[in-house]
Nucleic acid binder design. Structure first.
Length: 1051
RNA sequence: GGGCGUGUAGCUCAGUUGGUUAGAGUACCACGUUGACAUCGUGGGGGUCACAGGUUCGACUCCUGUCACGCCCACCA
């Protein structure tokens, strides 16, 4: 049999994957006999193809799944893709644009057709890439976040949350991306540091100051009261009886208190404090002058001595000539800028809050597309162009004072990096207070464990400070909001389209009350309603908006198992009941599971059973086949949800911890009454070799497919896993793949060695228990048992990097460098039984290595497994390595010895090699070795190993002497002294120098030990074992030195 | 402004609860066609463990501070 000299992943991988598929090895079905181990894939967006981050994420998951399968779990890894909302729509829009089309011309329906075309293409590509990666995904379970099952879940979730009063609609300030033309949630805004400018602008006071002065302070006090707003909040409440934001509530409660507790007075204004404030104007500082057109107040801190007297005065807003008040608000920082803030409630979050407190008008001056609106001559100008114009005009009017460089962070869209515009618009919101509280509790009750644990803190911090979630998006690609409006109240349901201009009026109220007066209320329903339940009208229009893509992602861990169809009422009741009782204790959980299973069986019978179908058939005699089939399918899936949920672990990068993980937990608890996963394994982000994030714009993207093609999938996987240490981002370069590829080849060749050897030995079995082991056999097996315990722990703790490195080291240095070399002596010898023993050890350890490495390098390990299976015809070996089991400790009890012995032998051989090389004895020269010994036993011991020494250190005769010979190279290791006669080979002086140097090094080492031992405190306080240890070191060193010194005499 | 993380050989990184003369891979140098492997073997050079204090008999490891880099969060105009 010919075995190629090098491993060729290209030809090996594809057939192996097909083999797994054919054998149904990825398939999972609920069983009573096995515990489940479940992962739902973080569904990649269908935005094209997979990048390195995906490759890492899925490799890790696959490794975990394969490991757990070897451990005997019923593993289930659910594949799928995400529609990816804005991201995907952007991709398709771009493509259209390159074809000279735009989506508005196409219209919603046609555009969505294009989207689906794209989805099918990209989705397939992604799934294929996952196959190339070797992922053991249960393909029959493939889902898409926008497919019928997931959509059903989304609608159901929406309706339930709405009915609970957690989802509401409101007109509020949101993050708006003028390029994507949609609202975004707070986490979808990224912050970029930018050196901007802080412009100081004069705002002239209204020329009524003299009048005021005459009227004395009384009026001023009155006015101040009015503008600091103690009465305001009540008014606010009265005007908006239905729903107001959380923050408004907070402010309502806090602000009167806050105004009674002025800020620390140490915040005295600097230089300006002594200067009498100008009587003509107030200077405000702003980074966004264009928003001044929408200013409706200037705010100062109530305790700011510079401005106290101006509170309640009026200002004439430059360029606009509108009269606006000076108000006092605690949010103003006395130390920043001039201490006076222009307030633009319609375009700045904190101004919005101030506006709420003071019931300021909210004037919209920037439209959805980023162009100016209601802005006089600036109308329709781009916001940045208008900025320039406004600055120019202010300058001309002499109102622009100074311009200061000002570093600050700018919010940008996470999908297109366009600067976010805070805008007022009508959106759907989800009140998350209760859910986030439950999620926090779950974490604190240890329902979820983080790996590494350090991620729990930021995760909790995030949850604890969560604000309401804006869930509506003004795009087309996504789950349409399941709300319908009756024609009678159509005006309520409309959101302004592109180019629609908001009137000043429509923005006056920050929150729109839902209440129709004589019109029908919106219909919130999981299915499209046939008619309006109020008036019976059939002219219903669905809400134009779609849901945030993360809304459907948050349902993923149970929507993939066909929630809510599979969740029966009793299940839900039980879930809620058990919420508090469920514990981490395995036993209890299993019990629960058992009970649940019973119920499930009952239920299944009920729904699949004859009774149900007949009943169904009777009612719907015509449509029977399809829907009945659907019901049948759904009811068989019933078991899935309870069998697989909660899933075992979620594997993800930290960049979507908040965006996704936190939300899954909240929704999981909300709808399932149980966290969606027990463990969260968080890995780093893939960066290039300079530590930069990979991005298309930087051009540093590495395509995993290229790497797989060039180095093989296993090399890609090994490189990623071995550099993915906990809590760290990973830097990856071409070198890491080369190393991994070489390792694959090394393993392949080790196996090749074993296989070739098997051709000449006939093994009827591979049991080692009855064999007579060589000391090297015992050594290897012992070392293996240490390795196994070590990597088992690593795998369990999701420290796959450690596993991979440990396996690498063992395979390369212990198995290949030493054991294979040791074994050759017996394999090529005449002693058949010795040959058999060595072969068995080789095979056994190789099998163990293949198994433990399989999760990381599935292809090559399966390939070699198959070859072994073929070679070991008479021996029962599982059909696939995937059907085997993780190796137990393989050390027979009688073998527990000799490890030290072999380590000494290794040291001795290494030392001989080292001396040879240092003395530049050519390796072609076979030298003789003389051992100095007067202890017969020592020589005998060495003599037994002499064949190893001869072979591995390239030594000829080995003899023993009692006195030092002359003209020899000398070495001492573990008390064994050896000599290599060098006469005629090399210059003896060199050897003298070499030994003197070695002696020098030892001397230094000795003195550090001596210092330590002379230290009374060390001897007194250090643990005795440590002192003993140090003493031994000293005597070892000293004896070594003596020996070398002694030998020097003979040179 | 807060929080977290990182700083160990030219490069990429290991280093478990404090006790090694600080390791690996790679790169570099030398030697090597020994019947698994040149995608290899053998040997070698290369580090004040960012810096400064402290705790300790003993610090790469623990504490404090400083510097550098990175990330996350935050309404500071």
């Amino acid at each position: 049999m010919e075995i190629p000299k090098a491993y060729d992943p290209q030809s090996a991988e594809e057939p192996i994957y097909q083999f797994w598929l054919k054998k149904n090895l990825f398939k999972s079905v609920p069983t009573q006999t096995k515990k489940s181990f479940t992962i739902v894939i973080p569904p990649p967006n269908v935005t094209g193809s997979l990048h390195m981050g995906h490759a890492l994420n899925n490799t890790l998951q696959d490794a975990v799944i394969r490991y757990k399968k070897l451990c005997g779990f019923n593993t289930c890894w659910v594949p799928g893709t995400d529609h990816g909302g804005i991201a995907t729509q952007n991709v398709v829009e771009k493509i259209l644009l390159s074809e000279g089309k735009n989506k508005n011309e196409l219209g919603r329906e046609k555009f969505l057709e294009k989207m689906w075309e794209w989805k099918n293409e990209s989705g397939e590509q992604i799934l294929n890439q996952l196959k190339k990666l070797g992922c053991a995904l249960d393909w029959d379970r493939t889902r898409f976040t926008l497919d019928a099952l997931c959509s059903r879940a989304v609608n159901e979730a929406f309706v339930r949350l709405y009915q609970k009063g957690l989802i509401y609609r409101g007109r509020r300030l949101v993050n708006w991306c003028p390029r994507c033309m949609t609202a975004l949630s707070d986490i979808e805004v990224e912050h970029e540091e930018e050196i901007g400018k802080l412009w100081h602008i004069k705002y002239p006071l209204k020329n009524q100051r003299t009048e005021d002065r005459g009227q004395g302070t009384e009026k001023r006090e009155e006015r101040r009261e009015k503008y600091t707003g103690s009465g305001k909040s009540k008014e606010f409440k009265a005007v908006h009886p239905f729903r107001f934001t959380l923050s408004a509530l907070r402010h309502f409660i806090l602000s009167p208190l806050a105004s009674r507790q002025p800020r620390a007075t140490s915040h005295e204004p600097r230089a300006t404090s002594h200067q009498p404030p100008s009587t003509d104007f107030v200077v405000v500082a702003t980074t966004r002058p264009e928003t001044m057109l929408g200013d409706t107040a200037v705010a100062v801190h109530p305790d700011d001595e510079r401005y106290k007297h101006l509170i309640g005065e009026k200002i004439i807003l430059p360029l606009v000539e509108r009269e606006i008040p000076i108000i006092a608000d605690n949010a103003v920082d006395i130390t920043f800028g001039t201490g006076a803030v222009k307030v633009t409630p319609a375009h700045d979050p904190s101004d919005f809050e101030i506006g709420m407190r003071h019931n300021l008008e909210k004037i919209v001056v920037i439209d959805y597309d980023g162009k100016m609106l209601n802005a006089g001559k600036y109308t329709s100008q781009d916001r940045y162009h208008a900025r320039k114009e406004i600055l120019k005009n202010l300058q001309e009017a002499g109102l622009l004072l100074e311009t200061v460089e000002h570093p600050h962070s700018v919010g940008v869209c996470y999908r297109c990096s366009t600067t976010i515009e805070p805008l007022i618009s009508e959106q759907w919101f989800l009140d998350v207070k209760e859910m986030s509280g439950a999620a926090v509790l779950a974490s604190k009750n240890r329902k979820i464990k983080f790996y590494p644990a350090s991620w729990e803190k930021p995760y909790l911090l995030w949850l604890e400070n969560l604000k309401d979630w804006c869930i509506s998006r003004q795009i087309w690609w996504g789950h349409r909001i399941p709300v319908w409006y009756c024609a009678k109240q159509e005006n309520r349901g409309q959101r302004s389209e592109v180019g629609h201009q908001l009137s000043v009026d429509s923005c006056q109220s920050p929150i729109t009350s839902h209440q129709p007066l004589e019109t029908c209320p919106p219909i919130v329903s999981a299915e499209k309603p046939e008619k309006c339940p109020h008036c019976g009208g059939t002219d219903l229009k669905q809400d134009e908006d779609v849901l945030d893509t993360w809304f459907s992602s948050a349902l993923w861990p149970f929507s993939v198992f066909a929630w809510p169809e599979n969740q029966r009422t009793e299940d839900r009741g039980q879930g809620t009941e058990n919420r508090g009782q469920r514990t981490e204790v395995r036993g209890e959980r299993t019990e629960n599971r058992g009970q649940r299973r019973e119920k499930r069986e009952e239920r299944r019978e009920k729904y699949t059973g004859s009774g149900k179908s007949k009943e169904f058939k009777a009612v719907h005699p015509f449509r029977f086949p399809l829907s009945a089939l659907r019901h049948f399918i759904l009811s068989t899936l019933v078991s899935d949800l309870s069998y697989y949920y909660p899933t075992s672990v979620l594997v993800t990068g930290h960049e979507i911890l908040y965006l996704w993980v936190a939300r899954m937990v909240q929704f999981g608890i909300e709808f399932m009454g149980e966290v969606p996963f027990r463990e969260v394994y968080i890995h780093g982000i893939v960066r290039d070799k300079f530590g930069k994030k990979m991005s298309k714009s930087l051009g540093n993207v590495v395509d995993p497919l290229d790497i797989m093609k060039k180095y093989g999938t296993d090399a890609l996987r090994f490189a990623m896993i071995s550099s993915a240490s906990a809590g760290r981002d990973i830097q990856i370069s071409e070198d890491s793949f080369v190393g991994a590829r070489n390792f694959a080849n090394k393993l392949y060749n080790a196996a090749r060695f074993v296989l070739l050897n098997l051709q000449s030995v006939d093994l009827e079995n591979i049991d080692i228990e009855g064999e007579k082991p060589d000391k090297t056999d015992r050594w290897l097996i012992y070392e293996l048992s240490i390795l196994l315990t070590e990597i088992k722990t690593n795998y369990e703790n999701y420290e796959l990097d450690k596993s991979s490195r440990a396996i690498y080291d063992f395979t390369w240095s212990k198995y290949c460098d030493w054991y294979i070399e040791f074994s050759k002596e017996r394999l090529y010898g005449d002693d058949l039984s010795a040959k058999k023993t060595a072969s068995k050890v080789l095979v056994n350890v190789l099998i163990a290595l293949l198994k433990v490495l399989h999760p990381i390098m599935p292809f090559i390990t399966e390939t070699l497994w198959q070859s072994l299976r073929e070679s070991l015809k008479g021996v029962a070996i599982e059909e696939s390595i995937m059907l085997s089991s993780f190796p137990q400790k393989t050390l027979p009890s009688s073998w527990r010895q000799d490890s030290e012995n072999v380590n000494t032998l290794i040291d001795l051989i290494s030392k001989i090699r080292s001396v040879r090389e240092e003395m530049r004895v050519p390796s072609s020269v076979v030298v003789n070795l003389v051992l100095k010994t007067d202890k017969k036993t020592l020589f005998e011991r060495i003599e037994k190993d002499s064949h190893y020494i001869r072979k591995l250190a390239r030594v000829g005769d080995i003899t023993a002497l009692k006195v030092n010979p002359t003209e020899c190279a000398y070495g001492v290791v573990s008390g064994i002294e050896f000599f290599i006669p060098l006469k005629g080979l090399v210059d003896i002086k060199k050897e003298k120098q070499r030994l003197e140097q070695e002696l020098e090094g030892l001397k230094k080492f000795r003195s550090t030990i001596q210092v330590k031992l002379k230290n009374e405190n060390f001897v007194k306080k250090a643990p005795p074992a440590e002192v003993e240890n140090t003493k031994n070191k000293l005597s070892d060193t000293e004896s070594k030195m003596e020996k070398i010194a002694e030998n020097l005499k003979y040179l």
